[in-house]
Design a protein around this nucleic acid. Structure first.
Length: 272
DNA sequence: TACATTTGACCGGA
DNA sequence: TCCGGTCAAATGTA
């Protein structure tokens, strides 16, 4: 891509938004395909997961490289609070009590608690928010570590972290079902005409566990991808991509998949 | 028995 | 003081 052709001051924001939209759609496609693919061939599912993550990673890099020169004005959907959070060094001072043993025990308790606590909140972490009907399966393994009733919301928010925290994977996510009375726009209808609940999913940080976990369990040597030719009419070129689709392409009903994408059931939104 | 989930308490930022 | 994110003991489950 010729970066010089991108006018960041003009259409930059629009291009950036489109790139993020693309990324969210790929994420959506991943969530849609992987569960089906996993039932057919877990090996292919793992490879597809890796490919999807690579695509998303490439997209993120493109956005970062193209717009990093805009003085940090990237519209990457990060947590707003992180932008206004000051770099405070103040610490909470413990009120001094003179209650002998009780105070010592209390201080020890307080110390052990605070020492065990890691950095609070998701300040400074990258975040990506989206709305989906299928919040659970996104190709990663999550462990729920909390649930909280949120003010003004009918449903509690669930907190998840990556199962592989022992590998220092910092990825976390929150899932919150959208309120039903917030208008029909927040609810889509499924194939039966029933209202399908929509969930706001916010991902924090990136997975650092996937390469060691997902790929190590599969014999990549036995999983040689096939080459796929894709024509680009705009450039007149034919690019060769690697993909392993022969094993599952017959299992997936592609026309139905496209129809689903046109259906409001998968009306994803990007929350910036 | 090991691992996952639930849930009330704790903590820190606003 | 309120609110939301996290901790960790209790509980559930395979």
């Amino acid at each position: 891509m010729d970066h010089s052709n991108i006018n960041c001051s003009g259409h930059g924001a629009e291009i950036e938004a489109l790139l993020w939209r693309q990324q969210e759609l790929v994420t959506q496609l991943r969530a849609l395909i992987l569960p089906q693919l996993h039932d057919v061939d877990s090996g292919s599912a793992e490879l597809a997961l890796h490919l999807f993550d690579d695509v998303i990673g490439c997209n993120t890099s493109v956005v970062s490289k193209l717009f990093s020169a805009r003085g940090g004005a990237s519209s990457e959907p990060v947590d707003d609070k992180s932008l206004v959070r000051k770099n405070s060094t103040s610490t909470t001072t413990t009120t001094a009590h003179d209650d002998g043993m009780d105070e010592i025990l209390e201080q020890q308790t307080m110390h052990s608690r605070s020492a065990g606590r890691k950095r609070r909140r998701n300040e400074g972490k990258r975040s990506r928010s989206l709305v989906t009907n299928v919040p659970d399966y996104d190709g990663h393994q999550w462990r729920k570590y909390g649930q909280k009733k949120i003010n003004g919301s009918q449903h509690a928010r669930s907190y998840y972290r990556c199962t592989f925290t022992e590998r220092n994977c910092p990825a976390t996510k929150t899932i919150q079902q959208q309120d039903k009375d917030g208008g029909s726009a927040n609810y889509s209808t499924d194939v039966n005409g029933d209202e399908a609940a929509k969930y706001t999913v916010v991902y924090y940080s990136d997975h650092t566990c996937k390469t060691s976990d997902n790929m190590s369990n599969n014999n990549i040597a036995d999983h040689q991808p096939n080459l796929v030719d894709i024509d680009f009419p705009s450039t007149g070129k034919t690019e060769i991509f690697t993909a392993d689709i022969t094993e599952w392409e017959t299992e997936l009903d592609v026309p139905a998949l496209l129809e689903v994408f046109n259906n409001s059931l998968l009306n994803w939104e990007v929350i910036c």
